[in-house]
Design a protein around this nucleic acid. Structure first.
Length: 783
DNA sequence: CTAGGGTTAG
C-alpha cells in the first residue's frame, strides 16, 4: 500500500488515469490497467534523460519507482495465480524492467534487487531468480533479507540441502533464517540438526521458539516441546496465540491435561484465545482427548465462526464416542469438506475394524472431488490389508504412484503390510528394496510380513540387518516366533531384547506369556509375571489376559483366577480367556457358570467365547448345553465357524449320535477341518461303528495325508471290531508312506539361552556332549 | 521495502 502510494506521489502516471476507475484508487496494488501506464511513463522518463549516470537523488527515485512497479508485478502475479494467462503480460513487464535496471545500474540497489527476486519467485522462474541472486551477491547488494528469502525459496521447493548450504554461507544469519531452517529441518525429521541450530541461535524471537515447539510436536517429542516452552518463559519472551496453540498440542501429546488447562487459563487471561479461531479448534481437540466430549461439543456450539477444522474436530468427537453414524451425519452437515474430514472418518472406521465401510467412504470421497493424502492412503491400505483385498490394494497402489507419494515412508509401510497380508511377499520385498530412504517402520512392516507368512528365517535375517531397532521391531520378531509356534526362539529373542536395554511392553508380554504357556514353563511364566509387576503394567487388560491364559495352560488355575478377579477392568477377551482356561482344565461346570455371569454382566460374547464354552461342553459330554449354546450363538448373530462345528461334532459323537454328527459335518458350507473327522473317527472307535468310521477315515485321509493319529485310531477301530486283517493292513499302509509320529521335545535354559531337543533330531550340535554328560551323571548316581 | 511460527486425521 505504502509503496504504491509513493509511486503515485513520485510519478505523474496516476494523474493520467481515467477517473472512471475509482476502485483502482482504493486498491492500487491489485489494479492491472494502471500498471502498464506507470511503466509507460517510466520508460519515457528513462528514454528522455541519461539513465546511466544520474545524480544520487535521481537514482534513488528511479530505484524506488522500479521497485514499486516490480512489487506491483509480483502482487498481480500472486493475485492471478489461478489465471496464468493474465499474469504473462506482467512477467513481460518485469523482464523489460529488469533489462532497464541492468542498463541503468539499478540492480545494485538493495530494494530493486530484492523486488526482482520476489517477482521471479512469484512467477516460478527459478533460473532467473538464481541469476538475480548471484548478481546481487556480486554487486554487494545482498542484504540478510536477500539470503533469508533465498533460503525460504529452497525450503519451499523441498530442497533442504541447498537451503542449508546457503544458510551456512550467509555472512550474517538473522533470526528469521534460523526460524526457517529450524522449521524445515523439523519438518524433515532432522530433529538433531534443528536442536543444534536452536542452541547456536544468538537471538531468539517468538516465532523462533514457536517453530521449535511446533517441530518437536510434529516429531512427537512432546516433552521436549514443553521444555522449550519452559525455556522461552524463563527468557521472558511472551508467547502469542500460535505459541500457546502449539503448547496445548504438546500437552495433549504428553497427556499433561492439567498443564494444558493452565495454558488455556493463561490464554483466556491475555485474551489471546478469543480472537483466534485455530485456538478454539485446538480446544475442541483438547477436551476430546481429555475425555470431556460434552465440553468439546459445547466449545463447538458456542463458536461464532467455524471453519472446516472446527467441523472436522466435531466429527472426531462423535467418532471418539463410538458414534460413527453421528460422525457421518456431521460430515454431511458440514458447509464444506476436505480430504482431512473424509480421512478422519475413514481412519476411524478402519481402526474400529470396519474395513469395508472405510473402502466405501474412500470411493465416496473420490466422488466428492477430494484428493486423498498420505494418511488417507495409509488408512485405506490398512483396510485392504485386513480384508486381504489385493485388487483394491493394487488399485490404490496405482493411485499413490500417480500422486507421487508411493515412496513416502507411511504409504510404503502400509503397502508392504498390504502385500504381505495378501501373501504377495515378492511385491512387498520389491517396494522395500526400492525405497530411497526407509525408516524403522518400513523395516518393521516387512519383518511382521515375513512372520505373518511363516518365513521366520527371512524375518530373522532382516532383523539382524536392521540399522536400529525399537520396541516394535522386537515385538514383531518375538510375536512372529510365538505365532509360528517357535516358542523357544521367542523366549530367546525376549532375553536378547532385555539384554539390549529395550523395555518390553504389553505387546511383548502377550507373546512371551503365550510362549511360556505353550512350553508349560510355569517357572518362566512366574519370572515373566514378576517382570510385569516390576514394570507396573500388571493392571493392563492385555497383559492380564495373557497371564490368565498362561497360568491356566500351565495348570495353575488358582493364580489364573486370582488375576482374573483382581483385574480392575475386564473386557470380553479377559472373560473369554478365563472361561477357556476353566474349560481346558476340565472344569466345565465352573466354565459354564462364569459364562452365565458374563452374560448377566452384559458383556457381549464373541465367536471365541462360544468356542470356549462349546469346548467345555464337548469335553464334559454336556450335549444339551452344547446344543443350547450353539443356538444362542446364532441368536447373537455369530455364524459358526469350522472350529465350532468340530466341537459340536465331537460332543454329538461322544454321546453316540454318530449319524447326527456325520450329517452335521456334511452340511458345513465351508470345508470341514481334519480334526472334525478325527473326532468322529475316534467316537466310531468307541462305539465300534465300522461303517461311519471308514467314511470318516477316508475323509480324514483326503484332508490330511500325514495325519498319524487318524491311522492309529482307524487301526484300533478295526481291532476293536475284531477286523484284525484290516487293522494289520492299516498298520502296513502307515509304514509304507513312512509316517512318523510326532516326536517328543524338551528344553533347558543355559545362561539365559534356551536349548531345545527333539526326539527325531540326530544332528543337534550338543548331542554328543549331552550324552556324555548323561553317562557321567549315571555313573555318579550309581557309583 | 521485503518476513519467519499454527489448528483437524494417521
Amino acid at each position: 500500500m505504502r509503496a504504491a502510494a509513493r509511486a503515485k506521489r513520485l510519478g505523474p502516471p496516476r494523474r493520467r488515469q481515467p477517473p472512471a476507475q475509482p476502485e483502482a484508487e482504493s486498491k492500487p496494488v491489485k489494479a492491472h490497467a494502471p500498471l502498464s501506464s506507470v511503466l509507460k511513463s517510466f520508460k519515457v522518463r528513462l528514454a528522455g534523460g541519461p539513465p546511466l549516470a544520474p545524480t544520487a537523488k535521481a537514482f534513488k527515485s528511479y530505484a524506488e519507482i522500479c521497485a514499486s512497479i516490480l512489487r506491483l508485478c509480483r502482487d498481480t502475479a500472486a493475485a492471478a495465480a489461478s489465471a496464468p494467462a493474465a499474469s504473462s503480460s506482467d512477467l513481460r513487464l518485469a523482464l523489460s524492467l529488469h533489462a532497464y535496471a541492468l542498463r541503468s545500474g539499478l540492480t545494485a540497489d538493495v530494494s530493486v534487487a530484492s523486488h526482482l527476486l520476489t517477482v521471479y519467485a512469484a512467477f516460478a522462474c527459478a533460473a532467473d531468480r538464481d541469476r538475480v541472486f548471484g548478481d546481487c551477491v556480486a554487486a554487494g547488494a545482498a542484504s540478510s533479507f536477500t539470503y533469508d528469502f533465498m533460503v525460504r525459496q529452497y525450503v519451499k521447493a523441498g530442497d533442504v540441502a541447498s537451503a542449508r548450504r546457503l544458510f551456512d554461507e550467509m555472512p550474517e544469519r538473522s533470526v528469521v533464517s534460523y526460524t526457517t531452517m529450524v522449521d524445515a529441518l523439523m519438518k524433515r525429521g532432522s530433529v538433531r540438526d534443528a536442536v543444534e541450530l536452536y542452541h547456536q541461535c544468538p537471538l531468539r524471537s517468538v516465532p523462533f521458539f514457536t517453530a521449535m515447539i511446533a517441530g518437536f510436536v510434529r516429531n512427537e517429542l512432546h516433552k521436549d516441546a514443553l521444555g522449550v516452552f519452559h525455556e522461552m518463559l524463563s527468557c521472558s519472551v511472551s508467547p502469542n496465540e500460535i505459541t500457546l496453540l502449539c503448547v496445548i498440542m504438546a500437552c495433549i501429546g504428553a497427556g499433561g491435561f492439567d498443564l494444558a488447562m493452565s495454558v488455556v487459563g493463561l490464554a483466556m487471561k491475555s485474551s489471546l484465545f478469543e480472537k483466534n479461531l485455530g485456538m478454539r479448534n485446538c480446544l475442541i481437540t483438547l477436551y476430546l482427548r481429555k475425555g470431556d466430549t460434552s465440553v468439546a461439543r459445547k466449545v463447538f456450539d458456542e463458536m461464532e465462526v467455524r471453519d472446516v477444522v472446527s467441523w472436522t474436530a466435531l466429527l472426531d468427537v462423535y467418532a471418539e464416542l463410538g458414534d460413527l453414524d453421528g460422525a457421518r451425519q456431521v460430515l454431511d452437515a458440514m458447509p464444506e469438506r476436505n480430504e482431512v474430514s473424509w480421512g478422519t472418518l475413514i481412519a476411524r472406521h478402519e481402526q474400529k475394524g470396519n474395513a469395508e465401510e472405510a473402502l466405501n467412504l474412500y470411493s465416496q470421497m473420490l466422488d466428492d472431488g477430494c484428493t486423498p493424502n498420505i494418511s488417507c492412503f495409509s488408512s485405506v491400505l490398512s483396510a485392504c490389508a485386513s480384508l486381504q483385498d489385493l485388487r483394491t490394494g493394487t488399485r490404490i497402489h496405482v493411485h499413490t504412484l500417480k500422486m507421487g507419494c508411493s515412496s513416502n515412508v507411511f504409504v510404503s509401510s502400509a503397502l508392504i503390510d498390504m502385500y504381505c497380508k495378501c501373501k504377495k511377499l515378492s511385491d512387498a520385498q520389491r517396494i522395500f528394496h526400492s525405497l530411497p530412504q526407509k525408516n524403522i517402520v518400513c523395516w518393521n512392516s516387512l519383518i511382521s510380513g515375513y512372520s505373518y507368512n511363516a518365513k521366520m528365517v527371512e524375518a530373522d535375517e532382516l532383523f539382524k540387518k536392521m540399522p536400529s531397532r525399537n520396541a516394535a521391531s522386537w515385538n514383531s520378531i518375538i510375536s512372529g516366533y510365538a505365532q509360528n509356534r517357535q516358542f523357544v526362539d521367542a523366549l530367546n529373542f525376549f532375553h536378547a531384547m532385555l539384554a539390549s536395554g529395550q523395555i518390553p511392553g504389553e505387546i511383548t508380554f502377550s507373546s512371551v506369556l503365550l510362549a511360556c504357556a505353550n512350553l508349560c514353563s510355569l517357572q518362566m511364566g512366574k519370572m515373566t509375571h514378576a517382570k510385569i509387576i516390576n514394570l507396573g503394567i500388571k493392571e493392563n487388560v492385555f497383559v492380564g489376559t495373557a497371564l490368565i491364559d498362561m497360568y491356566a495352560k500351565s495348570g495353575d488355575l488358582e493364580s489364573s483366577k486370582r488375576i482374573f478377579y483382581e483385574m480392575p477392568k475386564r473386557n470380553g477377551i479377559a472373560w473369554t480367556a478365563m472361561i477357556q482356561g476353566l474349560a481346558e482344565n476340565g472344569l466345565a461346570k465352573e466354565s459354564i457358570m462364569l459364562f452365565e455371569d458374563m452374560m448377566a454382566a452384559g458383556i457381549a460374547p464373541n465367536e471365541y467365547t462360544f468356542l470356549a464354552i462349546l469346548f467345555a461342553c464337548s469335553h464334559s459330554g454336556l450335549l444339551e448345553h452344547a446344543i443350547r449354546y450353539f443356538e444362542t450363538m446364532q441368536e447373537y448373530g455369530i455364524s459358526p465357524k469350522v472350529k465350532h462345528y468340530t466341537c459340536m461334532v465331537d460332543v454329538l459323537a461322544r454321546a453316540g449320535c454318530l449319524t447326527e454328527a456325520e450329517d452335521l459335518l456334511m452340511t458345513i458350507q465351508s470345508k470341514a477341518e481334519a480334526n472334525s473327522w478325527a473326532a468322529l473317527l475316534s467316537a466310531c472307535n468307541i462305539y465300534r461303528n465300522k461303517e461311519i468310521g471308514e467314511r470318516a477315515a477316508k475323509r480324514l485321509h483326503e484332508l490330511d495325508k500325514d495325519n498319524t493319529a487318524g491311522y492309529v485310531v482307524l487301526s484300533n477301530m478295526y481291532a476293536s471290531c475284531g477286523k484284525w486283517k484290516d487293522a494289520a493292513e492299516t498298520r502296513v499302509l502307515m509304514k509304507g508312506i513312512n509316517l512318523k509320529k510326532d516326536g517328543g521335545c524338551s528344553w533347558v535354559q543355559i545362561r539365559g539361552q534356551y536349548q531345545a531337543f527333539f526326539s527325531w533330531d540326530t544332528k543337534h550340535p550338543l548331542l554328543l556332549d549331552t550324552y556324555e554328560m548323561l553317562d557321567l551323571l549315571k555313573w555318579e548316581l550309581t557309583a
